[in-house]
Amino acid sequence: MSCNCQCSTEKENDPRFQELDEIIEKYKNQAGSLIPVLHKAQGVFGHLPEEVQSYIAKGLKLPLSEVYGVVSFYSLFTTVPRGKYVFNVCLGTACYVQGSRKIMDNLKKELGLGIGETTADGLFTLEGCRCVGACGLAPVLTVNEKVHGRLKEDDVPRLISLYKLKEEQGSK
């Protein structure tokens, strides 16, 4: 099960890799199991760094190149850690005609991030997504699971401070 590099004992003691073992075990005999395993693995690790990808490749008996090929093809898979709060601005057509671009521009400015980037403190990640289907509330953005709709440009600083406040209260 374990690889030959020095990290093996580290992985054996890491509960996340134990969980990954269970996931691989559950799926390894199913056809087309790579994508479901990657979804679950990202749920456990938060992202899919190279060591996780090679672990999965070994577990499913696939070349690492194939695992990486799939990870890099699908936009929901990420190889870099994401912030605690992921601001995902809907860039679907309905939101676009209702001004989502300005919301995005303001977020870029306020957070000092480009799309796909994360703040140095690991708190915020900025993303754009294609239609969350809440077109009735356009323009919308989601922060993790929560949808914020009917946004105006100047709602952006308020939203950011809302989550900063949440963080401060949470750490107390």
């Binding site: 056809a31 199991s33 994508i35 479901p36």
Partner: peptide
């Protein structure tokens, strides 16, 4: 159920089937 992973092209039927098979869509 098979979950997509954020690739628009997988709405195309042959790409969708390739994706269910576990490959790049």
């Amino acid at each position: 159920i098979r979950l997509g992973a954020g690739a628009f092209v997988c709405g195309e039927e042959t790409a969708l089937l390739t994706s269910i098979e576990g490959h790049r869509g």
